[in-house]
Amino acid sequence: MSEAWIPSAGELAGFRKAQRLAYDCAEAISAEMKPGMTERHVAARMKEYLLDHGADDCFHEPFAWFGDRTAFRGLIAVKQLGGFNPAFYPGLRRLEENMPFILDCAPTIQGCTADIGYCGVIGHNAILDRLMDDLIEYRQLILEQVKARRPLAEISRAVDALCAKHGYDPRHKAYPFETLAHRIEKLRDDGKKSHLKIANFGVRNISELLRDKIRGAREGWNPIWNSSDASQHVPTPGLWAVEPHLGFRDVGAKWEELLVVTDSDAFWLDDDVPHVRRWAQRGLWKQAA
């Protein structure tokens, strides 16, 4: 692979700031969520929060899914057109007590983009708790196998196998191109307060993904990390937004984080994220020595 981009420490700090903002946003908005609110209302509140706190572009506008939509049941599961499906957009579903929800946002600040997923419930949901507990294994599995330089498609299949063992549906397969993860590139910091979006996606970020697609086709790698043969290559250096999304019956759960891949190593951009803090609270998290 020619001239692979390996982010510098300064660049990583920028991405970390973007990811913190995204998770802060999810936590702040989820704290004000109440039964009766619609997905659209919550997504709009997230957008407001991000703009108020310095976001100047995005990979995509915030998503919010409630109830069985967290597990992508119904129209949202239609995979035709490569998975580009209007049902992904926040709708008029109203939040109820004990109903799971997922918030997903991807702000860009000064050229650095994050993409996160956050789940929760107002009240209690035993299935969601179990899913969120089990999600720790996916974070460990993915990192271990990337560090071992295993081909990305094989890692994705290992994730599928872990889902089968757990008895879950890998619902990230309902995303466009059955994406387990996708590339994030550094954009130019042009100082503008806002940038063009089409159909809720940031044009600059999507253009980068398309450029990666063309470049990857030439160089033999795939900017969309899934189980297909196109991803049968060693981990490409750079940043990957990884988003395993599990479903059991009508409940779905996910996290999404940036994974930093270098020539010989890999690490999660930031361990100070809500789901890791939750695992620590529940005694599941063992910090690697």
């Binding site: 179990r130 757990h166 008895g167 059991f248």
Partner: peptide
């Protein structure tokens, strides 16, 4: 282990 997992999922239901 697999049987226990099935039992656990059944309990969730």
């Amino acid at each position: 282990e697999a049987a226990e997992r099935t039992a656990e999922l059944s309990r969730l239901l």
